[in-house]
């Protein structure tokens, strides 16, 4: 924390860039929501349609977005360091599990998940990861066989 805080915050036209981004994203999301709710029915004041609540919330959100921009003008927030390697590896690991679980079964999916997730950390530890993966395979086998009918997950490809 303290090491980061010494960096001067990035600013655009006097606005703290990070807070500006947060505020503008929220502002735009609010507008999109309000716009999207136009396509639903408004109903009457007595019988309020599905459009009214999201419409109100959308405008509130847009207003709050602008408030964040102004509130954050003097903020000293600095963009933190983003561990891209970890972000990519972890998303890839989860994605691989999702793609493999139905077609290739749990064992393959677990190995893909664990080894891709292992890329997030340095150094890469193949032996440790192998042990973790084998342990989890044993766990899921026990789970599926022990709770037959409650947990329905295919262990092997095409099972």
């Amino acid at each position: 924390m303290s090491a980061e805080d010494t960096r001067p915050p990035h600013r655009i036209a006097g606005f703290n860039t990070l807070e500006l981004a947060a505020g503008l994203i929220i502002f735009v999301v609010g507008l999109i929501v309000a716009f999207e709710s136009l396509s639903y029915s408004f109903g009457t004041l007595r019988n309020v349609g599905p459009a009214v609540f999201p419409m109100l919330l959308g405008f509130t959100l847009a207003a709050l977005g602008l408030a964040i921009v102004f509130e954050g003008r003097t903020s000293l927030a600095v963009a933190p360091y983003v561990p891209w390697r970890a972000v990519l590896a972890i998303c890839a690991a989860l994605g691989a599990f999702a793609l493999l679980i139905d077609t290739a079964g749990a064992y393959v999916a677990i190995f893909a998940l664990i080894f891709l997730a292992g890329l997030a950390d340095r150094p890469f530890r193949p032996v440790t990861l192998l042990c973790v993966a084998l342990g989890l395979c044993a766990f899921i086998t026990a789970l599926v066989l022990g709770l037959r009918g409650i947990v329905n997950i295919d262990l092997l490809p095409g099972a």
């Binding site: 972890i90 690991a93 989860l94 994605g95 599990f97 999702a98 793609l99 679980i101 139905d102 999916a109 677990i110 998940l113 664990i114 997730a117 292992g118 997030a120 950390d121 990861l129 973790v132 989890l136 899921i140 947990v151 329905n152 997950i153």
Partner: peptide, 23 residues
Amino acid sequence: YPCILFFICLGAYSARNNPIDIF
């Protein structure tokens, strides 16, 4: 953390056996 990721996948998937939930 790999174990936590596994339990996240297991929990999300087993709710309705749909990989969409993991995405």
